[in-house]
């Protein structure tokens, strides 16, 4: 190491102004660093970033273009199922969208033959609204104690959900 240090001193003395050279060298390195930073930054940042704000603009379309599982409204159902649609329009359940009970039906609307949103088990489904629980007052909705009311059998044995006020009609539609 001692030998090395001595060597350096002789070289610097030959070149003349050592400090100016050092400044020049640092300057070159700095400029290079900035250029590299700008190039890398340009490559890393997505093109649509900053289009609408400090985020990737294309992300909006990606979010907006996701497929909907639920169809727009009951009107889509009514176009084919007119009988049920008309029956429901006069019943106590008229405010309820078909898909509240039948589940997501966007696929069925676009391809009716592929999927069929028929409700099989109704006891649990009806209970989600009509079972008596704390917080669900009788003034808001008719509530029952399922076991006392029916022994837990399928509600459609007595009620038609499309015309619930007409009891003992059975599974007609």
């Amino acid at each position: 190491m001692i030998f090395d240090r001595g060597d350096k001193v002789t070289i610097r003395q030959e070149d003349g102004n050592p400090s100016a050279q050092a400044v020049f060298r640092i300057g070159v390195i700095l400029v290079l660093a900035v250029v590299i930073f700008v190039i890398v930054r340009q490559m890393m940042i997505p093109a649509s970033f900053g289009q609408y704000g400090r985020y990737r603009g294309n992300s909006i379309s990606e979010n907006a273009s996701l497929n909907a599982a639920y169809a727009g409204s009951s009107n889509d159902c009514g176009e084919c199922h007119q009988q049920e649609f008309m029956a429901l329009a006069q019943a106590q359940h008229r405010e309820i969208d078909c898909q509240s009970c039948h589940g997501p039906a966007a696929k069925h609307v676009s391809k009716p033959a592929v999927t069929s949103p028929i409700v099989q088990e109704t006891a649990e489904l009806c209970n989600s609204c009509h079972r008596q629980i704390a917080g669900r007052q009788d003034g808001k909705i008719v509530t029952v104690r399922p076991l006392l009311h029916s022994g837990g059998v399928n509600c459609t044995r007595c009620h038609n959900p499309h015309r619930p006020q007409l009891s003992f009609e059975g599974d007609k539609s």
């Binding site: 909907a68 639920y70 727009g72 409204s73 359940h93 405010e95 969208d97 898909q99 509240s100």
Partner: peptide
């Protein structure tokens, strides 16, 4: 979807 299915509005 939640607005669509809410049975009581």
């Amino acid at each position: 979807a939640c607005v669509t299915v809410c049975p009581v509005g």
